[in-house]
Design a protein around this nucleic acid. Structure first.
Lengths: 210, 210
DNA sequence: GTCTATATTGTGATAGAC
DNA sequence: GTCTATCACAATATAGAC
């Protein structure tokens, strides 16, 4: 009876703390890798005692799982879907647009994902096997139909998807290299639009759509 | 005097052991990350006692440095140079060809490199700042001249280089994902040629060269 | 729900016998 | 040059006081 009235308040602290922990963990996992990121370093970045981290997430692997899940949800939402009726040009344009904006907005999510794949995708083989494979096959079929109808050049649809993935994610994953080469400290407002314009232009022309 | 005659033999063992260690280390660093790869795991993979690893390389960081250097040398050699006199079409074709073959032949080198960049490139900022920046600016100038001469479409040369890098390295770095999506266990002979054909075709057309 | 203290394990690195 | 034994330390995770 004495603490019935602060259930909600407690819940808010819980959610806030978990969010802070996940954000801190994402950064640490990117900078130090899974093994290199210590629970202590995550705690320091989240400005919470180490024991609290383990109170909320039980162990380090659970934190990593939570971070990965979070990342995949983003991947899923951010891409949106392709509307078959709009034709190849609009479809590719929208797809590139969405992926580039995601890369610039959530570079850490892209990096976590990339590292996971590079290291063998131990934690998300199932995701690629089921969800992604299906997604790629569906979209590839759609592109193939457009090719068969003479609406775009005869390019391999699956490799086209890989090309768009790699070219767009590159701006998140290789941020450091790109900025160093361009002699800049950070990306600027214009960069997103410029990259979208460049990639849309080149890829659409490459697909015989310009 | 008693062991004068086996100096050469000893030297060979040294070189052989170092090569075995570097190969094992490269694999471990890719699979487990810098911190996750232990000296013991490298020793096990190289089939040598742990103490021998540290005898040859002093400490773990030195092993990693040696692996990185090795990787950069490959990057350097593999790409070759662009001959300004051969024109944009041959230049881009050769560049794509070289990069794709490298990716399929030395996927681990590409992966090590990618992880290093993603994590902030602490060990090779100098490399990007000096060598790579110069390389990109030189090549970009060359492309710009071709554009100004009307020999190719007006695409941003620096972003074109990024696109070719990302699209080609993708087949090494995201190997796991690509194979899973294509429902295959390994790459096959034909794959290299197919990827080269796809990328050359799309990018050349994208540059107005087809 | 928060935090301190600590048990336990594993790692990098060295000393020293062969 | 090779390898065994060991040290010093850092990490995860838990127990239990508040």
């Amino acid at each position: 009876m004495s603490n019935n009235n602060n259930v909600k308040k407690t819940g808010t602290i819980r959610v806030q703390s978990q969010q802070k922990i996940l954000a801190a963990a994402r950064t640490e996992f990117v900078l130090q890798g899974y093994k290199g990121a210590t629970v202590q370093s995550i705690a320091d970045r989240a400005e919470l005692p180490k024991a609290n981290i383990l109170y909320y997430f039980k162990n380090k692997e659970n934190i990593y799982h939570a971070v990965l899940e979070n990342t995949l949800e983003m991947w899923d939402e951010g891409i949106g879907d392709i509307d078959p009726s709009e034709g190849p040009r609009a479809a590719i344009e929208k797809f590139i647009d969405a992926k580039v904006r995601m890369s610039f907005k959530y570079p850490e999510a892209s990096k976590i994902y990339a590292m996971e794949i590079i290291q063998g995708a131990q934690h998300l083989k199932e995701f690629a096997r089921t969800y992604q494979r299906k997604w790629v096959r569906e979209k590839a079929k759609l592109f193939q139909r457009w090719i068969d109808n003479g609406e775009m050049a005869n390019v391999d649809p699956v490799h086209l998807i890989f090309l768009i993935w790699s070219a767009t994610q590159h701006y998140a994953d290789f941020e450091t290299q790109i900025l160093t080469i361009m002699n800049r400290a950070d990306y600027e407002e214009d960069d997103v639009e410029q990259v979208i314009a460049f990639l849309s232009d080149l890829i659409l022309r490459g697909c015989g759509l310009k």
